[in-house]
Each structure stands twice: as structure tokens, then as C-alpha cells.
Nucleic acid binder design. Structure first.
Lengths: 340, 340
DNA sequence: CTGTTAGCGCCTTCAG
DNA sequence: CTGAAGGCGCTAACAG
């Protein structure tokens, strides 16, 4: 059963050093020796102890995945893609959730739980404050942010600005002029913050079309279904004249649609709704959206992280474009009819 | 920065053994000593190396989470719950995905990747063959199955039989008599298989109501949105007279609804649809469903696994009941009208 | 209650 | 191309 490296060495008639080199594919081992060692190891069912290997080498072959949730679309998809990419390179994925709840403040990220436990860190959609980032950087491992970001840190993200602009332009092209925006927490003004950039895209498109943007046109809430619903209720309460809404995520958009329906209004006849993500279930409500490949983004982020760990490659941000998927939640506005 | 235990020991004026005991909360350390050690450790930023600790103790404080996907509702929720529970007990969650794809056969579970790397295993919705189970058992760690199962292994699951029966009875109570069933792979006849048990529930309810169940009333496909859609298309093609369908999962049910709509039919006027899960987005299509708390199930499974690792408690299966959530996807059948 | 002493199992120089 | 030997940093008896 639990054979050690020395047993393999003994049976193969070589030293433990050679076994180690042979099994890890290091150079300076003759083919014949390597082959013999391999077969003995297989026969004995030998697998190196990760703990012992880590202790001796300093490498853990493990990546820490930090995320607020795994149950939301973006996070689940990124995590799935990342795990797959890591797995194919022999790395493991250690998952850490830091729920962002409505009631309590988020638990702070404690770098100690990652200390000497991972070779790299993937932060998935988790907005960290500077102190947390500094603490993680202090761990001395490569780190990549996916779908959130921090000045000075490598990021895999969407072209949020263009995405926000394009989504808004789609509504403008359809003839809308009073276009609301619902998004995440308003206090998030990090430059790399997706919500902030998407909002800027909305502002730019509105401005370019000569449309005025009163503060009442935007509502900030939580980045999920209920958040979208709540925000939409508020938006329609304060601006019954909006004919279209750009939601910063598909889940929010779907919540918005529910809110519209609750009020006895129809999508898109009374209110058009567009989201961002390309959520698998968007089709259920005919959601028009700006789609992007979250699984692929996760895989790319993981691959990039591994090259950084390997020390090869000059790392650079990865920016994904989104693709407009037209469905039935957007359409031309009804002429001159307010639904107040 | 990276201080070792001996440095803490030196500064605190005790031995490394005492530092170890003090920091891990073991008995036989005076309060004053423990306090001093703690403060020194904090001051020095000392955290024990997991590798070294594992190597010396044989414990990894890590659980392996095996799952086909993380992006589907049940899996994401269970994983999230499990991670949270593990985290609160100081355990880490190592994620391993084994995608079940339409094209390729699933990659087999190789116990070697888990060897000496985890203290326990949580299998989430992943049907394993006997050889794989045996290999995992051979690792010598406690193992729990969530939402899938194998004879002789501890399981956390739904009362699938009752759930299937109740869902079907709901349709029968509404007046339906030709009730189809769409579910997962037909070759899965494991006794503990949720699809099989849910199907049995359907059969029992039909039988109890004196309704005949022709083979054409059931279609088996993939356990996701597209699988549900495909299955529903096929079902309606071969049985245009069905007035209601019981889908084995909400994602399948939502796919079924899409298929119904594609055919120009309406839910529930032409066809009623009920699913299982209580998916967060079920509300979008007014999906009637048998809801269950997947996050809680994941947390409970993790907690149970930890008690097994600790050696306390006599482990027993955990069986969750589901709750009928009536929404608009189910209603009485139209009288005597076939929609062929 | 605390210290001493062996390892835990592997990797990695350094020789040869 | 291969072997010898010293850690990696901690835990777990066993004394005291």
C-alpha cells in the first residue's frame, strides 16, 4: 500500500534521488533507468507524498481560489474553467469562499490560511481592499484577479467600458431615450471595478447620443436576482418614464424582468432589459445580453497564473470582448406612452 | 516573515513542542505559557507550515470534493455549503471536477491524486462505478456521497422516492392523467440513484391512481437545460397527448418549458411542468418544483464527514425531504383537447 | 506542565 | 548519468 520512495529505489536498484528525478521527468536520467523506475513505482502503487514533497521543495502544486460565492453564474463558470486548467497541469485547486452578504460585512481575507499552502492565488470576482491585497502580496506568490481588480495587479476581465457602451447603444439604436442603469454597490469606485466601468460605458453612450442622465436613472443594489428586482422596483418608482434598462449582470437583469412583470408591465413592450453575461438560463426570459466565455476566462487565468509561477512569459492583462446576443427582452419603445 | 517554530520557541523561552501544543490548543499547557506563546507567534507572524504539519502528523486538514461540474445549481450549492462548513472547522476544500460530457466518456477518478492529500472525501453528484469506489475506499479515508450514492457508502440525499411520488401526485390532483417523465440516463439503475428513485416515485403515484404508464411516457436524456429540452421535444413528438410532465430536475424542467413554447404550446394550459430542486431562477418561468436546501445539504455532509474523521458519532445516512412550491407552471389540464 | 529526541517522506545540492 | 547525505518544519512519544 503506502510504499515510500526508498522502497521503490530498493526494488529498482537505484537511489532515492534517481527515483525522484525519474518520476518527475527531470533530465539526467537514462531512458532505461527511468522506465524501470516507472514500472516499479506503478507496480508498487507508489505516489509521492505531497506533504513531503512540498516540505522538501517548497512547492505545493496548489492554487488558492478566493471567491465570494460558487453558486452564481460567473463564479461557478470561472471556477470550473480554472480547476480544469489547473488539473491538466497537475495542480490542485483549494477553494475559499468569502460570502458577501446583505447583513454582515464580508469576512476579511486572512493570508495566514494560504501561507505555505499554495503556489499562486486566483481571486475570482472578489473585491479586496488595499490592506487585504497587500497581505496577499506579502505571501510572495503570483496572484491574478478575475472579474474584479486592483491597481497594480494582473487582471483577467471584460472590456467593461465597451461592453457597457455597446449594451446602451443597442437600446439607443432601438429608439430608447430614457435608459436606466441598475448595478452593484455605489461605493465601489475602484478604477478596475467592473460595475464602475460598465456604468461609465452607459454614461458615455448616453452622452454621445446627447441624452441626459439624471441621477434618478441609476440604482445600485446587490449583484444578484433579488438585487436586480429591488433595484428595478426602485427605479420604476422614481422614474416611471424609463423605457429601457441596462443591468450590469444577467442575474440582475432577470430580477429586473421579474420586477417589471410584478408591476403588470411587459418586457419589452413597456420596458426593455439588457444584461451582461450570457447566462445559460437567460433564454428562459428571452434575455438580451452581452455574452462572454466565463469558463474560458477561468481557464485562461489559471494558465496565466501557472506561467507566472513557472517564471516564463511576461504577464499582461487579459481583456475579453463581449458579444451582443439579441433576444426578446429588448425592442423598440412604445410611442409616447408613459406607464405611470 | 517566514519564521519557524523554533524561532517562536526561542523568543518565548520554551521548547518547540510546547509551542506546537500551545498553538494547537492541546491540553497540558499552562494558561500563562500558552498566552505567551500565542503573543510571540502573532508578533512574529508565525503560522505552522501545513506541509510540515501534515508530514509529521499524517493529517492534512483537507477534504477532497469530487464533482462533475460546479456550474450547475445542485453542485454549486452543495459545494458552497460544504466549503463553508469545512472552513469553519479549519479544513480546506480541494476541488476536483470530472466532467460528464455528451461526447466523451467521463475521465475516471484516479485515487492517486488524492493519496495522502486529503483526510476525507465528499463525492458530489458524481455517479461512480464500483471499481472507482473501491479505489477511493482503498485510500482509507471517510467518504460521503451527496446526491448520488453507492451501496454500502454513506449518503446525504433527498427522499427521492417520496419526492417523485409527491410531484406526480400534485399533477394527478390537478386532474392530469397522461403524465410524462423526463430524466437522466436510463442505464443508471443503481438503487441509490436519484433519477431511478424519482422515476419509481412517478411509477408508484401513477399506479396508485390507476393510471397506465406506457414506455412512451418517459424519455431519458441529459441532466441539464438542453437535455430537458431535447427530452421534451421527443416526448411531445411521441406522445402529443400528454398534459403534464414531471422532470427530474429544475434545469431539465426549464428546458422542457422551452421545448413546449417552441412548439407553440403554452405552460400550463397545454402542458404542466414540475421539476425538482427549488432552483433560484425557477421563478423566472413560474416553475412549480419540489424544493430542497442544497447549501444546507452540503454543509451537513461536510460536518458529518468531519465527525467521521474525528472518529466520534455513529454515522448514518442523511435524508432530506422536499417541499412542494406551487407556481404557475402547473395547472389543471384543458378538457379533452389534444394538442397534436 | 514542559523539554528531548526521533522521525514523517521527499528533494536537492554536491560528489563522483 | 547516478548516489550519498543533509535538511525541509513540524509532531509525537517519552522522559522528567
Amino acid at each position: 500500500m503506502a510504499h515510500g520512495i526508498d522502497e521503490v529505489a530498493r526494488v529498482a536498484g537505484v537511489s532515492t534521488a534517481t527515483v525522484s528525478r525519474a518520476l518527475r521527468g527531470l533530465p539526467n536520467v537514462s531512458d532505461s533507468t527511468r522506465e524501470r523506475v516507472r514500472s516499479v513505482a506503478t507496480q508498487l502503487g507508489y505516489v509521492a507524498s505531497p506533504s513531503a514533497a512540498s516540505l522538501a521543495s517548497g512547492r505545493t502544486m496548489t492554487i488558492g481560489l478566493l471567491t465570494p460565492w460558487v453558486k452564481h453564474w460567473f463564479f461557478a463558470n470561472v471556477i470550473e474553467g480554472a480547476e480544469r486548467a489547473l488539473q491538466s497541469e497537475g495542480f490542485g485547486a483549494l477553494l475559499y469562499t468569502f460570502e458577501i452578504s446583505r447583513n454582515a460585512p464580508r469576512r476579511r481575507v486572512d493570508p495566514d490560511v494560504l501561507r505555505r499552502r499554495v503556489d499562486g492565488i486566483l481571486v475570482v470576482g472578489l473585491p479586496l481592499d488595499p490592506a487585504e491585497v497587500a497581505a496577499l502580496v506579502g505571501l510572495g506568490h503570483p496572484m491574478i484577479f478575475v472579474g474584479s481588480g486592483v491597481e497594480g495587479q494582473l487582471t483577467v476581465r471584460l472590456d467593461d467600458l465597451v461592453t457597457g457602451r455597446t449594451a446602451t447603444e443597442h437600446l439607443i439604436d432601438l429608439g430608447h431615450r430614457r435608459i436606466g442603469h441598475i448595478s452593484g454597490a455605489p461605493d465601489d469606485v475602484t478604477p478596475f471595478s467592473p460595475p464602475a466601468a460598465r456604468r461609465r460605458g452607459w454614461l458615455e453612450a448616453m452622452g454621445a447620443a446627447g441624452l441626459s442622465v439624471e441621477p434618478t436613472l441609476e440604482v445600485h443594489g446587490h449583484f444578484d436576482l433579488d438585487g436586480g428586482r429591488d433595484s428595478m422596483r426602485q427605479l420604476l418608482a422614481q422614474r416611471p418614464d424609463v423605457t429601457a434598462v441596462f443591468a450590469a449582470s444577467d442575474e440582475m437583469a432577470m430580477g429586473a424582468i421579474l420586477a417589471v412583470r410584478e408591476l403588470g408591465l411587459r418586457v419589452p413592450q413597456d420596458v426593455s432589459v439588457i444584461g451582461i453575461d450570457g447566462h445559460d438560463l437567460g433564454e428562459l426570459v428571452g434575455l438580451t445580453t452581452m455574452a462572454h466565455p466565463a469558463v474560458e476566462e477561468g481557464a485562461a487565468a489559471a494558465a496565466l497564473l501557472l506561467t507566472m509561477i513557472a517564471g516564463t512569459s511576461a504577464p499582461a492583462d487579459l481583456v475579453y470582448q463581449t458579444r451582443l446576443v439579441r433576444r426578446s427582452s429588448t425592442g423598440p419603445p412604445r410611442e409616447g406612452v408613459a406607464h405611470a
